[in-house]
Design a protein around this nucleic acid. Structure first.
Lengths: 213, 213
DNA sequence: ATAAACTCTGTACGACGTACATTATACGCC
DNA sequence: GGCGTATAATGTACGTCGTACAGAGTTTAT
């Protein structure tokens, strides 16, 4: 290559994004913020990435990998592989709520997304689903995990509010609602808990398996 | 009340948002855009709504109603009520992709959200689920619908690109992937189709029902 | 040695959400 | 029935965002 040496590369940029998220997990990282942290002008990033959406795309790829897609390939029972990856990914996202919107800003077609898809396909195939159903099931799992994370992130307590008190606030609000809502207020108030997410994914997998008979 | 007459009200604002979405369904409506359409300065909207997130919240409420939550209450078989509302809501969102992020920008606790929850609870209860499971199932359905809509919106063809050609592009890209992905490329390429969404929701409900035995 | 290719900077633009002071309007009260 | 006061809308402004474009500086190929 001709010109001057590059001072950065995409992985350095991703690292900067992750550092920003470590410091302020709920704040959505911005192009300018990333550039500032790297000691560089905002438009310098355009050398490495065509636009903001693409930057978010590489961050998404990094997070998909952080959740350990390799563990999807085999070793443990197929069902645990699916729920395991799903819940790990969800946890990674919720510990950095600022990154959640990135998953909805463009198509997910990077190599890690493909790898996750292949791993889910393998697991569901091992579970006895026919190929087409396995494909549908794999997508449904992704939908569920990302939907769950996004809704939970939208409901996160702001700074200066404890998790326990928002939960209690939700519970009393629901208890004042219509009959069925009131009757299940305690359960419904914890709708964004990991346990609830796990329940949902398990029911989804149950339904996919049931389609066998 | 004392001061001058109000020139607007919240419903007029919501109407303006919907008009903006009619004209440019993929563009996220902005405070300034809404104000301009109403012939008013941007900060005038602060008389009616505390901030942008709250504005988005009332739009969300309006869309939840547009999908016809009353039909959740009864009349048809319980299962159809659930899938019907879910798919109607999904369709409303996808015909206005610009509004999808609004569903993830704050808690969903308006009256229509409560009404939808109650309707889902009623349907699942009629389906035989115990109250707590019905609550979990209701939330899982919401997660799935919104997740599906958000992922589909993120993958929508840009202007000047037909749906058929993006589908074909996805198919060939997947066909070049790892073995299981390649084998199911045709199915997986249509992952954001309404049929696929329906399949996912039906599997989820199947799984919830199965938890009975 | 020179030209071409490439990186980064400097500067700028328009859009966004929102804050604050100011002006105009209408009701309640004496 | 005029007047004070609460309220609505405006005017103006600030800081942040993504991104465009021209220019300066650096490296390699010839």
């Amino acid at each position: 290559m001709k010109g001057p040496k590059r001072s950065l590369d995409v992985s350095k940029i991703v690292n900067a994004v992750m550092e920003l998220l470590d410091e302020e997990p709920a704040a959505a990282p911005t192009l300018r913020g990333v550039a500032a942290r790297l000691g560089v002008r905002p438009n310098t990033l355009y050398t490495y990435v065509p636009d903001r959406v693409a930057l978010e795309g590489v961050v998404v790829e990094h997070l998909l990998e952080l959740a350990g897609p390799a563990a999807l390939a085999g070793g443990t029972p197929w069902r645990e592989r699916i729920t395991g990856y799903a819940l790990r990914l969800r946890a990674e996202l919720l510990s950095r709520p600022g990154v959640v919107p990135f998953f909805f800003s463009g198509p997910m077609n990077g190599p890690n997304a493909v790898m996750v898809g292949e791993g889910l396909l393998a697991a569901f195939t091992e579970g006895g689903l026919r190929p087409d159903d396995a494909a549908r099931a794999a997508y449904a799992v992704i939908v569920h995990v990302l939907g769950s994370a996004a809704l939970a992130a939208a409901d996160l307590p702001g700074p200066g509010t404890s998790e326990a008190e928002t939960l209690e606030a939700r519970r009393t609000a629901l208890a004042a609602g219509p009959p069925l809502t009131a009757a299940t207020a305690a359960t419904a108030a914890a709708w964004n808990s990991p346990e609830q997410a796990e329940w949902g994914i398990n029911r989804l997998i149950d339904g996919c398996v049931r389609s066998l008979r």
